[in-house]
């Protein structure tokens, strides 16, 4: 199972189908931003997002969206603040700010956000 850093370093592919985003790692999710929706409720009763952890990947279902491709444009990304499973969530240094860019043929690319990208924790 990849860590977040390994996924970024190895350019591990992500996938998306409809409102589902598939990430190649397991993580604790702290904040997700899609368009102008700021999601921080990741409980099972959340109305905005449903997170399902599988053996080798994690699926994020964006419940307010029918098709991610119609909502996230070429220069936009889905932003995540995540912590690797097993790492200390209370240590801010372990918080990873990543951006997921949607590409063609259901593929998505994951990058650590640089200083240029506006992303407030």
């Amino acid at each position: 199972m990849n860590t977040i850093d390994e996924s970024i370093k190895n350019n591990s592919p992500c996938l998306y189908y409809g409102n589902r985003l598939i990430l190649p790692f397991h993580a604790h999710f702290l904040k997700v931003i899609i368009e102008d929706d700021i999601l921080t409720d990741f409980s099972s009763s959340s109305k905005g997002i449903n997170i399902k952890e599988e053996d080798d990947f994690t699926s994020l279902y964006f419940l307010d969206f029918e098709d991610l491709k119609n909502s996230v444009s070429k220069y936009e990304s889905i932003k995540l603040i995540v912590v690797d499973k097993g790492k200390n969530i209370f240590d801010i240094d372990n918080h990873r700010k990543v951006a997921v860019y949607l590409e063609e043929k259901h593929k998505a690319r994951i990058e650590e956000t640089d200083e240029d990208i506006l992303f407030i924790e």
Binding site: K31, I33, E35, I38, E76, L118, I120
Partner: peptide, 10 residues
């Protein structure tokens, strides 16, 4: 407002 929300500001 919209730009700020996309940056994660509530």
């Amino acid at each position: 407002k919209s730009i700020c929300e996309r940056a994660g500001i509530n």
